[in-house]
């Protein structure tokens, strides 16, 4: 039974990370129809920058913010400098973002090398917690990570449902042409949403580097998980990303614990199943 609880908690940890990574991806896709293949690279960049800042300043919070900002800036630059010029041509954007991710991954390998990094944890988060009821001990950072994902999820929901900026984003998802016709600066909105998505990815990168570790290849792992999460949960919806992340994270950990050599198949099976029953994803809306 202890194993089951631990595996469930591991699954929730992973789900929290996947949620953080996938919401940005899903948001960008929902608004702009851009499949940002460089999303994993943005996440890894955030992680590396966060690590370097934590090493330099010793402050974990500063590292998370710096990682988020670095990835936000990189995301805004990518949209402003490259993807924005081919808006509407989705295949070209996808290919261009693949090129960007290849270049970014290679330059990061150059600068940070091929070693695995783990961010030094602050005192408060470094130990473990004995959980009441379940009777198992669990790392504080991972519990904090779940709380962090919850907070981000709620904040994002508030931003999208309750603020003016969120209303503009939702309008853009529903009818981009009308939003443009009403005179909204769509280019600027796109760049800010890209920055927002990048920031979420960058923060996820720092958190991933704290709770687990990061290395070259982490970008691919999170790009894939983001893809599967939004395919399962539905594109462009925060709730969908949360549900998808939960399913994928838990399936991956149960798979790893109970059928170690076929773990990857579980994730994949969920995706195929969802595609067969609901091609638009569990919480996604059907394309017109």
């Amino acid at each position: 039974m202890t194993l089951f609880f631990i595996v469930t908690l591991n699954g929730l940890t992973l789900a929290a990370l996947y949620f953080l990574a996938a919401t940005g991806f899903s948001l960008i896709f929902g608004l702009m129809r851009t499949v940002n293949m460089a999303h994993g690279a943005l996440l890894l960049l955030g992680g590396y920058v966060g690590f370097s800042v934590v090493e330099a300043t010793g402050s974990w919070g500063l590292g998370v913010i710096a990682g988020g900002l670095a990835a936000a800036l990189a995301g805004a630059l990518v949209q402003f400098g490259i993807l924005g010029w081919m808006q509407g041509d989705e295949l070209r954007q996808t290919l261009a973002s693949i090129a960007i991710s290849i270049i970014m991954a290679d330059l990061m390998l150059w600068h940070w090398g091929g070693i695995t990094y783990q961010v030094t944890l602050p005192e408060l988060l470094s130990g473990g917690q004995r959980l009441p009821l379940l009777g198992v001990g669990y790392a504080s950072i991972r519990l904090a990570l779940m709380a962090f994902a919850l907070v981000i999820g709620v904040a994002l929901w508030f931003l999208i449902q309750k603020t003016r900026f969120g209303a503009v984003i939702r309008a853009g998802v529903d009818d981009q042409a009308m939003l443009r016709a009403l005179g909204f600066p769509i280019k600027r909105i796109f760049i800010s949403v890209f920055a927002l998505g990048g920031m979420l990815a960058g923060m996820a990168g720092v958190v991933a580097a704290s709770a687990l570790s990061i290395a070259p290849g982490t970008d691919l792992q999170f790009l894939l998980s983001s893809l599967v999460v939004v395919i399962v949960g539905g594109m462009g919806s925060v709730g969908g990303a949360a549900l998808g992340a939960l399913l994928v994270g838990l399936a991956e950990q149960y798979g790893l614990a109970y059928a170690p050599t076929y773990g990857a198949v579980f994730t994949f099976a969920i995706m195929v199943l969802v595609l067969a029953v609901r091609p638009q994803g569990l919480l996604g809306r059907a394309e017109k």
């Binding site: 295949l91 894939l224 893809l227 599967v228 395919i231 994949f268 995706m271």
Partner: peptide
Amino acid sequence: IMITLAIGVAFFYLTRQNY
């Protein structure tokens, strides 16, 4: 693109995990 990429990469992870 997304679905075939997920299939391709899932196969990669399968080959890496399975002995």
